[in-house]
Design a protein around this nucleic acid. Structure first.
Length: 418
RNA sequence: GUGGGCGUAGCUCAGCAGGUUAGAGCACCUGGUUGUGGCCCAGGAGGUCGUGGGUUCAAGUCCCAUCGCUCACCCCA
């Protein structure tokens, strides 16, 4: 007896009855991006580990405990990508994509990997689609990206969702806020969780999005980051809000929305769905005006988002998913052993002629073959047996009405072709 | 890494306080139609009750361990 293998914990097979939903979703994304002027980019599944350490941040959870890292040839440290912005920006810099001028608008649909305990809406290998708009610092760009996320989710059939929005300022305003926050939290140190106490040193802002009720009550009195924005940040934020109002995109301001990746500046946002469990973010993103430079490129502002496909599929209200249902088929059935090879060759020929046909390859009884035809939802069956071989005809049976008509074998393709 | 729930047929599940050959529905196969599907009827195949150990005259049922799944914490899509 041999071991039965299972898919690895946190990974999922997408079985044939689910793939149509995926294909509809992917097609919708491609069409949408095309309309909005974003070009597809595909990057390798792994990158040098350092790319993520330097972009996402070494104290982030993603880098500190969730990466699938291995040594290539025993020396180079590589990592299965745990997020997609850094690789895209890496490629952007590497190929000087900026040289083609203007704002570089890229999108992707891709797998990523994080070593976490799986739960509803969270897998170790999961898929996202997302966009990166590189080159413009202006609020219109923020509004475009956020609106794109919102509208695309709507187009995918998400009915109820909440867009949460914040501005975490530029580097220097954030440092000012950071200090004040640390001071505030220090007064409540004993009531903070262990991780939060740790985080005061590493990344105090992250304490803001805790779910711990005790910490939440403390934070109610904490200073707001919005009060520490400088004039430019403030103006930028207000203009983004104004544009969203004008575009009819509903949002909620959430001054505690911080997000776990270190590269964000100014605008951060998240779209959550009530149909999910604890992991309710369908989409998250924000501006990252320093990342391109941090990764060795010229100083270039940018903003993007990423959305979790598995989560969207969970949150989606069932809609027109039948658009990719298999087209009607013709089933070829052998009524005698002698007809089998004729059926087989004819079947392949008809496929070559462009018809959608199937036939038995298990030497099953005629009865089983017709049952199969029915199961496959075939429109008609072509039945050939001893008599038909002699006469050079096939019985074409309409599976709806049950009517049967003899058709010349030589002309059978024409009979079905329009 | 921590905690809760669950593991019985391909699927969804039942199995009363432990008691003889472990059930249902759907799916599957065969026959009713000696070459013709769907509906109906009759029959059939399919389970070492996740795995290992223990308690007991007797374990799917109780206990322990282990593996797996799942939800939640942490964090994120």
């Amino acid at each position: 007896m041999s071991k039965i293998f299972q898919s690895v914990k946190g990974t999922k097979d997408i079985l044939p009855d689910e793939t149509p939903r995926w294909r509809v979703l992917e097609q919708t994304v491609h069409d949408f991006m095309n309309r909005w002027g974003y070009k597809e980019i595909r990057t390798p599944v792994f990158e040098q580990t350092d790319l993520f350490v330097r972009s996402v941040g070494k104290d982030s959870d993603v880098v500190s405990k969730q990466m699938y890292t291995f040594l290539d040839h025993g020396k180079t440290s590589l990592t299965l990508k745990p997020e997609l912005t850094a690789p895209v920006i890496r490629a952007y810099i590497q190929y000087n994509i900026a040289l083609s001028g203007g704002v570089t608008k890229l999108y992707y649909i891709d797998s990523l990997f994080r070593q976490e305990r799986p739960q509803k809406g969270r897998l170790r290998q999961f898929q996202q689609f997302g966009i990166e708009a590189i080159g413009s610092p202006h609020p219109e760009q923020d509004a475009e990206v956020i609106t794109a996320a919102y509208r695309l989710l709507q187009e995918l059939g998400i009915r109820t969702m909440t867009l949460k929005l914040n501005n975490i300022g530029n580097k220097s305003s954030r440092v000012r806020y950071r200090d004040v926050l640390i001071e505030f939290l220090s007064d409540h140190l004993d009531r903070l969780s262990k991780t939060s106490q740790e985080r005061i040193k590493t990344n105090p802002l992250r304490i803001l999005d805790t779910k711990n009720p005790e910490e939440q009550t403390i934070l109610e009195k904490a200073p707001h980051i919005l009060d520490f924005l400088d004039e430019d940040d403030r103006k930028h934020y207000d203009e983004v809000l104004t544009y969203l109002d004008q575009l009819g995109v509903p949002y909620e301001q959430d001054h505690q929305l911080v997000r776990g990746l270190d590269y964000y500046t100014r605008t951060t946002f998240e779209i959550i769905s009530p149909k999910l469990g604890a992991q309710d973010a369908l989409c998250g993103g924000g501006r990252y005006d320093d990342l391109v430079e941090d990764l060795g490129g010229k100083p270039t502002p940018a903003i993007g988002f990423a959305a979790g496909i598995e989560r969207i599929l969970l949150a989606m209200d069932e809609k027109n998913m039948d658009s990719l249902e298999p087209a009607p088929r013709i089933y070829l059935a052998a009524a005698s052993e002698s007809a089998r090879s004729t059926i087989f060759k004819l079947g392949i020929d008809l496929r070559n002629a462009g018809l959608f046909v199937d036939f038995d390859i298990l030497y099953r009884s005629l009865k089983s073959q017709l049952r199969e035809a029915n199961r496959l939802n075939c429109v008609s069956a072509i039945i050939i047996g001893e008599d038909e071989l002699i006469e050079g005809v096939a019985q074409v049976k309409d599976l709806q009405s049950g009517e049967q008509t003899p058709v010349d074998l030589d002309t059978i393709a024409d009979y079905f072709l329009p």
